[in-house]
Design a protein around this nucleic acid. Structure first.
Length: 328
DNA sequence: AAGAATCGCAACCGCGAGACA
DNA sequence: ATGTCTCGCGGTTGCGATTCT
């Protein structure tokens, strides 16, 4: 008996392994992953090879580059639309993998959860923690100019410079992108895009993402209205928290002239120099109120107040950290 | 300066779907 | 019809880097 099977390697990939994998893909294309091991090229499972290719070695990936403002918006929009279909969402983000999107989303969830959790505790035992939160929020409120690379669609160029990620050839081509302030994510601006994705001519970027469809995509520029945009329970929960003035106290925004607590969401949303979109309470209403009719269980019109009236006010002081989106 | 907390990312795991013998 | 294999996806974990106290 052989007894001793070839051991399967796990863990971080070496440059030599990458090279072997790239050569295999060049020869046979991104398939037959299991044959890589059966041919003795690598001691990796086909699964592992595929993952490595998809997440790190594939052409035109934006390895090591933060999500741009537009990418963030797209993810948020599409997540609301599709749920945790990361692979699907990733097809709308050139250079991003499902893993990227997944990681981005979970980081964001954790961050929001922590902010909310800190808010509920710090509203009573104030300052030491809220200092940190304030800093955190101000950091995202005055976002740095991040550098995002332009990408060539040339596979050869890409594969030769890949291992350097954003560090050399990519970074050389970086263009500056102004990041949006995170509090914008809380404001209805985020939802004002009113995306009816079903009506959009979205062209998923498959294996070979095009730079053109990244920022310039009609989806990003001119999003039509979507009367049926739904909020996930967590989004609604988060929006509900927006009613809590302590939230903005904690964020250090309560006295911000631009962010009036009295009417934090009633002001028209400003989109750069573009026309202002009238964003009002409808965008904060629960899903049921936004579906034609918007009636409550008794057949009465539902208003935002009516919705929140159903909920004991102190409920928001004990909100658990946001659960994983898997429940949606 | 050091330890703690948090972040960001890479990789693995389990499951389901589809292809194929 | 059924079992096996492969692939793809979503969830989770581990760990180094960074930031905070």
């Amino acid at each position: 008996m052989e007894g001793k099977r070839e051991e399967i390697r796990k863990g971080p990939w070496k440059a030599e392994e990458d090279e072997v994998l790239i050569n295999h893909v060049k020869k046979y294309g991104p398939r037959d992953w299991s044959s890589i091991r059966s041919k003795g090229l690598l001691q990796r499972t086909g699964k592992s090879c595929r993952l490595r290719w998809v997440n790190k070695l594939r052409p035109n990936l934006k390895n090591g580059c933060k999500f741009s403002q537009e990418e963030e918006r797209v993810v948020i929009e599409l997540q609301a639309q599709f749920g945790n279909k990361w692979a699907k969402i990733a097809t709308y983000l050139p250079g991003r993998t499902d893993n990227d999107v997944k990681n981005f989303w979970s980081s964001r969830q954790k961050r929001l959860a922590r902010i909310l959790q800190n808010n509920s505790t710090s509203s009573s035992n104030s300052n030491s923690k809220s200092h940190k939160i304030k800093r955190e929020i101000s950091a995202v409120h005055d976002p740095p100019i991040l550098e995002a690379p332009k990408f060539s669609s040339s596979m050869e160029e890409e594969s030769s410079s890949r291992a350097q990620s954003c560090s050399s050839s990519y970074i050389d081509n970086c263009e500056k992108i102004k990041m949006v302030a995170l509090p914008d994510l809380f404001k209805p601006k985020l939802f004002s895009y009113d995306t009816n994705l079903a009506q959009l001519e979205l062209i998923p970027c498959e294996e070979t993402p095009c730079t053109e469809c990244q920022i310039q995509s009609p989806f990003l520029q001119n999003l039509p209205t979507q009367p049926d945009l739904k909020f996930s329970p967590e989004s609604q929960e988060l929006l509900a928290r927006m009613e809590d003035p302590y939230l903005f106290n904690v964020f250090g925004l309560a006295d911000d002239a631009e962010l009036s607590i009295e009417q934090p969401f009633l002001d028209p949303v400003r989109l750069g120099n573009e026309a202002q979109l009238p964003i009002g309470p409808p965008y904060l209403e629960p899903v049921r109120s936004r579906r034609n009719g918007a009636r409550d269980d008794d057949g009465n019109p539902v208003t935002t107040d009516a919705f929140f009236d159903d909920i004991p006010t102190d409920v928001f002081d004990h909100i658990e950290p946001l659960p994983g989106p898997s429940r949606w």
